[in-house]
């Protein structure tokens, strides 16, 4: 059992947890993830490590409630425990030593870019963060992001914070089109956003990394549930990734495979909501 030492509500459906997991805390690098299981009948779901505190032995995760398991997690309070918390898994993010990196986060994706931005900044890299959400209240972890980046640009669908528009608009109009030199872009968030970023940077041959989030079971290379096609070759996202060259990822396949259990996910979530309502 892994004890939750702190819980923070970031939005009504986004929760931050600090979890006691000393072995993971001692090891996790930016870009790596853990696999958690909430209870005995629960499924195993992957979550990115958002921060670690090796001294206290804690690992920070940010969870966006999109279905049953994430909602079960989101209900846990400080003092309660998560049944299984295994990691760190996957390869650490490759980090440049100099230059300018743009990190882009959407949805829960803001959390995983935090440790990457922080590590890059510590190495002396200039880091621009771009984060977007539907509206101002859904922009999460802005203070932490400002601390970890050299500069942060925000955007919202309704214009309530920063630019009115999408993260790709900000990237193109405020950086690329202005001739700002960029050495690398790292985008983490919903698949549609990562694909849009890939298409934005492709014409400029701008090196872009994304963190794929396919369906996983073990997270150790044992099952192949997480397979994706990169440069025409099958890769296991949990051991070969999850970070890949965005211009080489077959996003159509990734999106399609992500929907494999849509009907079952809906059934489980509906049942869960009915149970909670009663």
């Amino acid at each position: 059992m892994f004890k939750i030492v702190k819980r923070r509500v970031l939005t009504p459906v986004t929760k931050l947890y600090e979890v006691e997991a000393p072995l993971v805390a001692a090891k996790a690098q930016p870009g790596q993830f853990v696999v958690v299981r909430v209870n005995e009948t629960g499924e195993r779901i992957p979550l990115t490590v958002a921060a670690t505190d090796p001294k206290r032995g804690t690992v920070t995760i940010v969870i966006q409630e999109v279905g049953k398991t994430s909602s079960l997690l989101g209900r846990l309070e400080a003092g309660q425990a998560i049944l299984d918390f295994a990691g760190p898994l996957g390869k650490p993010a490759p980090l440049l030593d100099s230059g300018h990196v743009v990190v882009i986060g959407g949805g829960f994706g803001v959390a995983p870019i935090l440790p990457i931005a922080k590590a890059l900044k510590e190495r002396g890299v200039k880091v621009t963060g771009i984060v977007g959400a539907r509206t101002k209240d859904l922009l999460i972890l802005l203070d932490e992001l400002r601390e970890s980046c050299t500069d942060v640009l925000t955007c919202t669908d309704d214009g309530s914070s920063g630019t009115k528009g999408l993260v790709t608009d900000v990237l193109k109009e405020q950086l690329i089109d202005q001739g700002v030199p960029i050495d690398q872009v790292i985008a983490i968030g919903p698949m549609v956003m990562m694909r849009a970023v890939a298409e934005t940077t492709r014409p400029f041959n701008l090196k872009t990394l994304v963190s794929l989030d396919p369906i996983m079971v073990d997270g150790t290379g044992m099952c192949g549930a997480c397979r994706c096609t990169v440069e025409g070759k099958t890769k296991f996202a949990c051991v070969d990734g999850p970070i890949f060259d965005a211009h080489k990822v077959d996003f159509n396949e990734a999106v399609r495979r992500g929907k494999m259990y849509a009907a079952e996910q809906k059934l489980a979530f509906d049942r869960y909501k009915a149970e909670v309502a009663n």
């Binding site: 009948t41 629960g42 259990y261």
Partner: peptide, 15 residues
């Protein structure tokens, strides 16, 4: 391991 044959009592599905 995940007891998908007991879905939705267990959360892991199988197709």
């Amino acid at each position: 391991l995940m007891k998908a044959y007991k879905f939705p009592e267990y959360d892991t599905p199988i197709k």
